[in-house]
Amino acid sequence: MAKETAKTHKEWEKPLLELEDTIAKLREAARREADPVKQANYIEKAETYQEQCNRYVKLMYSNLGDWEKVLVARAEKRPYTLDYIQSIFNGFIELQGDRNGFNDNAIVGGPAEFNGRPVIVLGHQKGRNIQDRQMRNFGMAKPEGYRKAIRLFEMAERFRMPVISFVDTPAADPGVESESRGISEAIAAAMLKMFQLTVPTISVIIGEGGSGGAIGIAVSNRVLMLEHAVYSVIPPEGCAAILWRAPERAPEAAEALQITAKSALSFGIIDEIVSEPEGAAHRDPAGASDLIKEAVVRHLDELLLLSPAELHADRHAKFRKLGKFAETF
C-alpha cells in the first residue's frame, strides 16, 4: 500500500483518499435516500469503511520511513504558518517589507498575542493553489524575506517581546535575483541577529526545514519539531544529484541524511518532538495546533524565568556545543 517510490504525498495517500472518497459518497447517498432500510444500509457500509480507513491511517502513519516523512512534511494539505498563527495566536497584524526596496511573501510575520502575552511571530509561508504558490514562491524566501525577519527581530528586542518562528521551507530561493541581492548575506545576518537577541526565542519546524533557508530563522533558545516534519542540510534531491548525479534517488538520500525529528533530537539539535494527531497534522489541524501551543507555552514559561543576559548566553551555549568529532590532546 505505502509505496517507497511515491513522489508526492497525494500519490502515497491514494488508497486512503479513494477510501475516504467512497465513504463520503456513501454518506451523501444515505443523506439523499428516502427509504429508511436502504439508508441504514448505506450508513452501515460507510461505518465499516470508516473503520477500515481509520485502521489504514494508523498503519500508514505509525511507522513512516524517511522518504515518507519528506512526503508528509511537503503535503499540500499540511497546515502552514498562517494556519497556525490563526489557530494559536490572537490579533495578528502582518507587517511587511524590508525597507530596502522589496517585500517577500514567502516569509510572513508581525506582532500578535500568544497565551495572553504580546509576541512577534513569523515564519515561512507556502501557498495552496497555483497562484498562491507563485505568490509565496513555494515558501522559498529571497533576501528581502530574511531582511524582513531581521526587522521583526529588532522590533522584538526593542519592545521586549518573545519571538516565535515557524519553519517550513524547501530551501532559500536560489535564483539570479536572490544572488544579486545577497541571499547568503541575508541568511547569515538573520542568524547573527538572532544570536544578539536578549528576549526568549522559540522556533518550531512545522514542515520542511530546508537547509540555510530554515536555519536563517531558527537560531533560537528552543527548537521544537513536529513529529513528521523534516530538517536537512540539503534537499534529498540535491544530495542525490551531487552524490550519484541521480535526483530520482532522493528516497535513498533522505535515509542517508537522517532528516527526521528523531535523529535531530538524538544529535541534540532540537529540544523536543511535538507529537502530531493520528494521521498527521493535516488530518486534524486543530489538534496539531493544540499540541504545538502546549509545547511552546511550556518552553516559553521556562525561558521567561531567565534574565536578558542569560537568554543571550543560553542561545550561544546551545549552538556552541553542536557538532560531533574526535579530539586527541
Partner: peptide, 15 residues
C-alpha cells in the same frame, strides 16, 4: 554529516 553540518553555520555565525 547531515544536520550537524547545518548547525556549524549557526555555530560559526555565533562566534
Amino acid at each position: 554529516e547531515g544536520l550537524l553540518s547545518l548547525m556549524q553555520m549557526a555555530k560559526t555565525t555565533g562566534a
